[in-house]
Design a binder for these strands. Structure first.
Lengths: 217, 217
DNA sequence: TTCTGACCCGATCAACCAAATTGGTCAGAG
DNA sequence: CTCTGACCAATTTGGTTGATCGGGTCAGAA
């Protein structure tokens, strides 16, 4: 089997089992069987179970960032903050393993959550201070909005969404996300039509490229 | 010692110890000693440790609701949703035991979290659907905003605030809350000056009275 | 060369018991 | 009468041991 597809199968199997049973209760052998290979084959690619987890985290983040970027690129208004936020939130909510990582879900991550979850900052503050600054330079954010605070607000709301997710229905979540995006649009963005949407899209593309490069490192 | 002040001491001691060591690790004797009385005296007032916890939960909620109401009453703009939300959030953030209840913090509540935390709905959805409806009738909420969704958004954001609280500084939290209130004001409330602020205040007072009556039951 | 699965051994778990702890009681002190 | 703290029963804890499990390896199958 080609290495690339085998790796992908391992990642898929591991992500599903981790979400279902937690990292601690999932054995390498179970992952291997779910991926249709033997345990030994897993160790041909990963030094250890921890290395597998770390690689899975990176992979999930890369796929996530790529998916968000794709949505932004396909969206005519993709360069606006409210749209970017909505796209990132939707994709985050659709990825159980990343959600667990984001909330440091102890049931899923077990002891792994205590040994500092690596590079979680990339998720936690995808839409970070620096990025918000760039949007402001493109006139896509009102000048009286503090970039740092705005970045924190988006992080807090995401955390709330991800945490409340299970107890709200999927449709309710969609409605909630819509209203949040609307709130962002009306109070943080300049009046409709203003601002350089293409610059926003470009800034986001570069942000994603930077994160991806770091994750690929 | 007068029963009332003794009860209050027990509540204070219990709340502090529960937050510090968790419900499971806090013994009734420790609570009694911290309250300056003997264990037996605790059992003069509460049937069991569980009954004490339940009573504490009710008490904390009643004090919380009363504190929010006091802030709302003292605020000239107290009837507006953004103000009410800000006041409730601030008070919630200032109450560690309620925060733990709100997030179902397993470290604090221990096994108690599994035996259905009673009446947590009162906190979770203080600003519930029905209340938002009344604000809308007082022209304090734009007619195109869905009451149910708005109520959920406020719940989600509160959850995010409370969950993220410890990792953000207190000052950062204040800034975040300010921006959230501003977002609520600009997109959910009608333009400044419109709406019957007194009606909003009255509606909130009645909401509080209703909740208090239920908690006192 | 690629991959398997039996094997190794340290970590974990289940079972058990004795000691300590704690929720709850109550005789009697104040 | 109010309240205390010694007391009890029941649960929990700490410690031990033997069995099991699971991460990681590698001889050899395919």
């Amino acid at each position: 089997m080609a290495v690339a597809v085998r790796t992908e199968r391992i990642f898929d199997a591991a992500a599903e089992l981790f979400v279902r049973y937690g990292v601690a209760k999932t054995t390498v052998d179970e992952i291997a069987r779910a991926a249709g290979i033997s345990k030994g084959a897993v160790y041909l690619e990963f030094r250890s179970k921890d290395a597998l987890i770390e690689a899975l985290v990176r992979q999930e983040m890369r796929v996530y960032v790529a998916a968000v970027l794709a949505r932004v690129e396909a969206d005519p208004d993709g360069g606006r903050l409210s749209r970017i936020y909505q796209h990132s939130a939707r994709e985050l909510l659709a990825r159980p393993f990343l959600r667990a990582l984001y909330t440091r879900d102890a049931d899923v991550l077990g002891a792994y959550v205590r040994r500092g979850v690596p590079r979680q900052e990339a998720t936690r503050s995808l839409l970070n201070n620096a990025f918000v600054q760039r949007l402001r330079e493109a006139n896509l954010i009102r000048p009286d909005i503090d970039a740092e605070v705005l970045s924190q607000v988006m992080g807090v709301v995401s955390l709330g969404l991800v945490t409340a997710g299970p107890s709200l229905g999927g449709t309710a979540l969609a409605g909630v996300l819509d209203l949040v995006a609307r709130m962002l649009a009306t109070t943080v963005e300049p009046p409709a039509g203003q601002g350089d949407v293409e610059a926003g899209r470009k800034a986001f593309a570069e942000l994603c490229a930077g994160i991806d490069a770091e994750l690929a490192r």
